[in-house]
Structure formats: C-alpha cells, structure tokens
C-alpha cells in the first residue's frame, strides 16, 4: 500500500512539473484591432476636377501587433490593412466621384515607458497605397489612380485607466508619410497615352516632406465587457501631395467601432500548440 501511495505521489509530482514547464514557457500573443470606420471625406484631385469633392465613406481596418520575440519585449511588429469605399459629390451636386482604396503596411515599433501607466511606441511602417477615383461623366480622364509606397513614421501612446469594475485603455495612434514614391500623371496626359502607348514619362515621382505631407491619427478607447473588448474612437486623416503642378488633397474625419482581441498562432513543426490547447487541426 505504501508503495502504491509513493508511486502515485511521484506520478502526480511529475505531471505538475511538466505542467509548470509548459506554464513557464512564454508564447507571443498577437493583438488584433479590427474596426469599421464611418468617415466624412473631402478629396481634391485636379487630374479629374479642379473642384473639391465631399461625401461619405466606410472602411474596414485591421491592425495586428505582436512582440518580436518572447525575449525582446521592447520591439513589436505591426501589420495594417485598410479597405475603403466612398461616394463624393462636387459642390454643386451635379457630379459624383466613386472611390475605392486599399492600404497595406508592415512596420516595427520600439517600446518605452516614460512614466508609470503610460506606454509609448515609436517606429516606422512601410506601406503600399492604392486608390481608384472615378468621375463617370468625364471623357478620357474619368479615372485616376492613387498609387504610392511610403515609409511612414508611426507612434502610439497608450494609457490604462483603472475604474472600479474594469480597466479602460485609451490610445492615440499617429502616422505620417516620410519618404517614398508615387504615381501622378501630368494634368494633360491621358491614360490612353500612359497605359496604351506606354508613355510613363514623368508619372513616377519621389516623395518626401517637400511634396507629400500628412498625418493620420486615431484616438480610441478599449472598453472590456464580459467576454469581449470593444473599441470606440475618432480618427482624422489629412494628406496633401503635389507633383506636375497638381496639388492633391485628402481629408477625412471618422468614427470607428470595433473589437480588440489577442490570439496566438501555432503552425509548422517547431511552433506547435502546447498540449493544453485543443484544436480541430490536431
């Protein structure tokens, strides 16, 4: 009987030690911030029209952040995806502009904590931006594409407010283009000449603060509920760029609503899920 009790104790201890090892191993969680954004839009595209167009837009934004490695907790990787659509009118409401946009970027940020409770992240993000604008009633210049790639400065300030029942996280994220290149045709060049005759002269431009400036900011608050964390906020975007004597502007004011959740990714042979995780993929 003593032998049985002794062996049982050894077995339970072994299981506990194993479990403790699993617990002690650190896994990186990715934080996903998904939002639906409703915006007022104000575009000026002098290739299509000298007049400013204004209207409404809706977009989906996904922002995923994760630490570089369990050992490097002061550097995080970021990937962003934004898909947008909008409908804008000229000041006299006699013509409309349809807008579709997509932006994808990957970046890296450095973390530091200047004061207790306040977290700051600063870094860079490289992105690719695509926009399609159409004024249907135009002949030979009904469409203009926004095509650009940029290295952006990014920053994030995050502060936790502890209330009686829950903790709120308020965040201010900003992004500003620094250097890159962009597609801007001459005001008189038709897409027939550019794409069908292949005359790309003077359409690709180096961009930096001398000809492209802007700021994209979001002020948001994460509110945890019982089983989910919701995110509410306001956003602003102001972008102005020039090439070929044309000045383009894009201004947006937004309301956003979304969710925030953490997830872990396990795949491959060396990154298998711990045994206390169960999956349909086993």
């Amino acid at each position: 009987m003593k032998k049985i009790i002794f062996l049982s104790c050894i077995f339970i201890l072994a299981i506990n030690i194993s479990a403790q090892n699993e617990d002690e191993k650190k896994y990186i969680l990715s934080t996903n911030k998904s939002s639906i954004i409703f915006s007022t839009l104000n575009f000026t595209d002098p290739y299509l029209s000298p007049l400013p167009y204004s209207g409404l837009g809706v977009s989906y934004n996904s922002d995923i952040n994760s630490l570089l490695s369990p050992e490097r907790t002061n550097i995080s990787m970021q990937s962003k995806l934004n898909m947008a659509t909008g409908l804008l009118l000229n000041p006299a409401s006699t013509a409309s502009m349809i807008y579709f946009g997509m932006n994808y970027g990957r970046g890296i940020q450095y973390y530091f904590q200047p004061v207790n409770g306040l977290q700051l992240w600063a870094g860079g993000l490289w992105d690719i931006d695509f926009g399609y604008k159409e004024i249907e009633r135009n002949v030979n210049n009904p469409i203009n594409f926004d095509l650009s790639t940029n290295l952006n400065l990014t920053g994030l300030a995050s502060y936790d407010i502890h209330l009686q029942k829950r903790s709120l996280k308020i965040q201010l994220a900003v992004q500003s283009p620094l250097i890159g290149c962009m597609f801007v045709p001459n005001g008189g060049a038709s897409y027939y000449e550019i794409f069908e005759l292949g005359n790309m002269t003077n359409t690709i431009h180096f961009s930096s603060l001398h000809n492209k400036r802007g700021i994209n900011g979001t002020f948001s608050m994460n509110v945890p509920f019982r089983y989910s964390t919701w995110r509410f906020g306001i956003g602003f975007k102001s972008l102005k760029y020039t090439a070929n004597d044309l000045v383009f502007k894009r201004n947006e004011l937004s309301l956003l609503i979304g969710t925030t959740f953490d997830f872990a990714k396990f795949s491959g042979m060396k990154n298998k899920a711990p045994k206390n995780f169960i999956s349909t993929n086993e």
């Binding site: 029209s49 000298p50 007049l51 135009n138 030979n140 008189g188 000449e193």
Partner: peptide
C-alpha cells in the same frame, strides 16, 4: 485633339481638346 473634361464651380462641365 484628344478631349478631356473639367468643371466649373456651378457644376457645369466643360469638354475641350487637351492632347
């Protein structure tokens, strides 16, 4: 001349030879 379009503040549209 390949025609282009533009517009006036009152919303009238103008087509003209551009290229």
């Amino acid at each position: 001349g390949l025609p282009f379009s533009s517009e006036l503040p009152n919303g009238w549209t103008i087509r003209f030879s551009a290229s």
